[in-house]
């Protein structure tokens, strides 16, 4: 069973994502900001991270940079999942090392499709 870490400051979004991911046979973990997510990754790296952009404490971008610098031997796949849908944001995310990008709102098909593209579903 693959694990997915859902990083979002919104409890509702985490719940929706968890529900969808569980129907896709993922084991789901949650984090409310980048800091928590980083701790969780360093403790046990997941296969894939669903990452929000705007969060208190540590943003998605800062998390991504910190994850890169953390020296994890195998970096989990990172799928940004955000309401930001401008080209500039998408390009910045890819440059920072995101593997995929989901624009909210998303549905089951969107998520499944993106997870297939990064090779974890």
């Amino acid at each position: 069973m693959k694990t997915c870490l859902v990083v979002d400051d919104s409890k509702v979004i985490r719940k929706v994502a968890r529900h969808i991911l569980e129907t896709l046979d993922f084991q789901v973990r949650e984090a409310g900001d980048g800091r928590e997510a980083l701790d969780s990754c360093l403790a046990t790296p997941p296969d894939v991270i669903l990452l929000d952009w705007n969060m208190p404490v540590m943003s998605g971008m800062d998390f991504l940079r910190a994850l890169k610098d953390s020296g994890l031997p195998q970096r989990p796949k990172v799928v940004f999942c955000t309401t930001e849908n401008g080209m500039a944001y998408i390009r910045a995310a890819i440059e920072a090392g995101a593997d995929e990008y989901v624009m909210k709102p998303f549905d089951r098909e969107t998520l499944e499709s993106k997870l297939q593209i990064v090779g974890v579903a």
Binding site: N85, G86, M87, I90, R91, I94, A98, E100, Y101, V102, M103, P105, F106, D107, E109, T110, S113, K114, I117
Partner: peptide
Amino acid sequence: SQFEIQRGLSVLRMISWFEGSGG
């Protein structure tokens, strides 16, 4: 639509071949 563009299309292909315009 945003839903259609995200089904099956990688983000790299999306930004190489499509332009966002009012949703």
